[in-house]
Design a protein around this nucleic acid. Structure first.
Lengths: 206, 206
DNA sequence: ATAACTTTGTGAATGTAATCACTACTTAAA
DNA sequence: TTTAAGTAGTGATTACATTCACAAAGTTAT
């Protein structure tokens, strides 16, 4: 079950299952079929079963999946059974919104440090901690065991910042800058880019 | 060239080309080959040529593509040659960040109204206009010719808000709430969900 | 017990997307 | 003018993803 033997599209869907299962559990559902899960997520039961089959056999014929059990297994597969520490780079308007976003922490993603290249920002307080200069990155990433970098700098500085993160062994990057960054194979990058989303949407609205 | 004959993945990539071409133009480049564009965007030249071939023949053998011409054509294909008016639903922290985000407007996406279901928020000022109650939605969408709804309400209210938008003929939805909304076929929805992005990232970081 | 349902897991089949490889053309150099 | 190098556009091919369809197993009703 190494990472490369599982299609990436499948991995992208697992968090959807995790979220749906969490809701079902909170709603008091004990058992769910691929059928039900499928109608909840608007996908075919066969796809759900096939996706899960890459990782093991979690269901029971004639019955379905135990919600809590499957949820636990999927969280473990995704590595969500532990806390992930992240640092934020760029504390402008967007950076502020990110650090105050309440959705990360309950899912185990903790932002534990903030950096900015602009010396006017350094030293100001944000979300409970002081903004540090970029020069401190190596030290802080190492000491705080940070494995994820969240990039919220202007497009013009994004590639440079991302390279600096990679230099310091940060292997996961959540990029909010509107660019298509170049990263080595062993780095995982996810881009959050609402403008691109809108620009593909309008094709269908014309 | 109706929308359905073009694979959706292709449409999702067109904005990437638009962005790269804009940069090239700003940098003074007149002509670009699929080779160069490919290395800029980390994709194969063949894929770029094939993608473009769904819409027409824009290049010149032995030479490449005229940057300004291709950019113009792609913007037209995507419907980016006009202004798109959007309304924001939900003016909490996230809503504020969205309305103050400077990236939409230069690309032709204008937020022209804001709504909130919470009566405490209604009437307050944000980004230059007053927050309106949800009851005004029908009227405002109609009068201001709003075609896109940006949803920034808590997960628990998202589905309801989305249905209300659709009822009022809003055909495009940019959803920031962490849910998998159910929408009819003729509605285009794009989800912005950084937590999902992180949760699939960790699979590769474990 | 038995029969009628239900549901998983999975090879096989189908459908979709990416890449290859070649022709036709363009440009620039010899 | 001729030759060599470069490039778009595109059928054919290969690779990848989804769906089908069915055996095996569990569940519920009688």
């Amino acid at each position: 079950m190494d990472s490369f033997s599982v299609p990436e599209v499948v991995v992208l869907r697992l968090p959807l299952y995790v979220r749906a299962l969490s809701q079902l559990r909170d709603g008091g559902t004990d058992v769910v079929s691929s059928q039900q899960l499928g109608s909840l997520l608007q996908m075919t039961p066969a796809q759900i079963r096939k996706d899960l089959s890459y990782f093991g056999r979690f269901g029971k014929q004639g019955r379905g999946y135990n919600v809590r059990f499957l949820l636990h297994e999927l969280r473990e597969i995704l590595g969500l059974d532990r806390e992930w520490r992240a640092c934020l780079i760029g504390v402008g308007r967007l950076g502020h919104a990110i650090i105050n976003y309440p959705g990360f922490s309950p899912e185990g993603f903790k932002i534990v440090a903030a950096f900015d290249g602009d010396s006017d920002q350094v030293g100001t307080s944000i979300g409970g901690f002081k903004v540090r200069p970029m020069e401190d990155l190596a030290e802080v990433v190492n000491e705080m065991k940070i494995s994820i970098g969240i990039v919220a700098v202007p497009a013009s500085q994004a590639q440079e910042v991302i390279e600096k993160l990679i230099e310091n062994k940060v292997k996961g990057i959540l990029n909010y800058a509107p660019v298509a960054p170049q990263v080595p194979m062993n780095t995982v990058i996810r881009n959050i880019d609402p403008v691109l989303s809108l620009q593909s949407m309008t094709f269908y609205l014309r």
